[in-house]
Write a protein that binds this DNA or RNA. Structure first.
Lengths: 136, 136
DNA sequence: CCCAATAGTATCATACTGTGATACTATGGC
DNA sequence: GCCATAGTATCACAGTATGATACTATTGGG
């Protein structure tokens, strides 16, 4: 439920960070849940404990977890996570999503395929009462 | 029509690469168009010419441009761009889009806002006869 | 109350990557 | 043939990511 590719061009630490971010955002890790101790996760992934520790600190800087020496690291409640200003949030999202759209076009998807792919992902990870999709 | 942030944590070269990729994918640069000479673009952006040259080579490795010493670099026809195997394309897209969905959830968007934002982007960058949106 | 176990932190070393300075080679027009 | 143009190669350097190791804080059992 979290893996890293040591040979990837994207740094291991960032993979860990992004992976845990996604686990929290998409609901595999819930508020109050405890993250594995840095040594354990580091051992499981085959990386240095500092690499994991740094990822935890980045998550804490984002307000996604709260960490305390000797007691571990746990996921914060969604309500206590600061979000940036709406303008900068929107700007960041736009550039991320624009890149995603570019990727889809370069992958030679049809627009319908793209729409479908997105709809599937939203249904899978962001279930909504008004939608008929079932979360995995 | 292409800018870089020198102080960004994402490397300048990657910004250039991603920027040009997007310009090509989204139609601001069309097949046959010539990219600016490395020295010119480097000067405009205030970076070293090698940084631009490396981005150009990465684009060429992706098949998005063709480059020739002394003659410049131009955008290839879409038909001569290799796409990876459907499986790996889909895998790459899924991970990109999943991260984007995670970002949107963390930004505390409502699902409706997210859907709308995506629809807007698709209409803007991927006009389609069956859609009523107008490209910018 | 102390000690051991647990869990995150600090410091330092090192390899790698990104960027830049500079010199080189290929192409095309006059 | 020469010159301007345009990409390439080589080397140096700085910053970043990762790792080795030692340290500090918290908790619970005896």
């Amino acid at each position: 439920m979290l893996s890293v590719r040591l040979d990837s061009p994207v740094p291991i630490g960032e993979q860990i960070l992004a992976g845990i971010r996604a686990l929290i955002a998409l609901g595999s890790l819930n508020p109050g849940d405890e993250l594995p101790p840095v040594r354990q996760l580091a051992g499981d992934l085959g990386v240095n404990l500092n690499t994991v520790a740094r990822a935890y600190r980045a998550l804490e800087a984002d307000g996604l977890v709260r960490t305390a020496r000797g007691r571990g690291t746990r996921v914060t409640a969604a309500t206590e996570r600061p979000t940036g200003s709406p303008a900068e949030v929107r700007a960041r999202l736009e550039s991320t999503l624009t890149a995603a759209v570019a990727d889809m076009k370069l992958a030679a998807l049809s627009r319908d395929d793209a729409t479908q792919l997105i709809a599937d992902l939203l249904n899978r990870y962001w279930p909504d009462a008004n939608q008929k999709g079932e979360p995995s």
